[in-house]
Amino acid sequence: MKTEKHDKILLAHGGGGQLSDELIRHTIQPKLKNDILAELGDSANLNLTSNSVCFTTDSYVVKPLFFNGGDIGKLAVCGTVNDLAVAGAKPIALSLALIIETGFKFELLEKILDGISRAAKENDVNIVTGDTKTVEAGAVDKIFINTAGIGERLAGVDLGFDKIAVGDKIIISGTIGDHGMTIISQREGLKFQSQLKSDCAGLAKLTCQLLQNNSGVKFMRDPTRGGLAATLNEISRATGLSIEINEAKIPVNPAVQAVADMLGFDVLNIANEGKFAAVVSPESADNCLNICKNNRLGKQAGIIGEIIETCDVPVVEIKTRIGGRRIVQMPYGSQLPRIC
């Protein structure tokens, strides 16, 4: 058994031979048990009931691998689940590809696989196919993960930028900035204690609930990199319409705000991993909000603004707490910590 002989990943674990086989059969497969994966075929066989299928992929390279509220494994499942969820789909199956550097501890790999397994169960989705590659130490930063996902679009659901109209309301499903600020505050070199916790979570159950009980949802997106600012600017650019949001209505965890202020970050630009922004018709907004608030992952949801006519060029504008106004720009790359 590999665990008696090796406590670290060797190049041979990705070489297609005996060690590869042991890694898959004894370490990976037991954690991700399901009938389709058990076949270990070159492809997974899926029987879908719908011919309206959503398909997505994403790669995960987060540092640190383990953070308060999650790990790279949980993130790799939830991130892909969320991409399907906001497209109006129910996630069915995921693929899992691991690229691991030699010397990586089995103990950590198993912890990551546990994170993957738990997240998959929570989101009612199976890992049905996968791949493992090993590379020389330093060729990747410990471990990189890619997941792809297939989901079935819910019947009657038709989301898109083209549905959005003036007067539509914007809902955010909870506090913003939690994931990004947690990662930044746990990065090497930032030696302060904080209580921050990533919001990393799969949203499919909540989005399915929302879409099945409300026909007023027109568009959804998960504001990951670039944060809410990027998502709202994308909506504005794509529709040619402007957006007005109200700062006082945007839910922000005070600890997240404090760390963001201290490091000079704007929470609107910070990544989320368990939130969606939805554009909904004005008459459905209250009902949508109630559905969100009745779900564990949407308790702090809020209606934060609306779609408005464009005067000259489409802009996202925020009304600040003191009654001032400013434009919310598309974030322009990484922000640097300030020095005084």
């Binding site: 704007d266 003191i322 001032g324 106004r325 400013r326």
Partner: peptide
């Protein structure tokens, strides 16, 4: 001043 839109007030 910018972030809070103070100029506009």
């Amino acid at each position: 001043i910018f972030r809070n839109g103070i100029r506009s007030t």
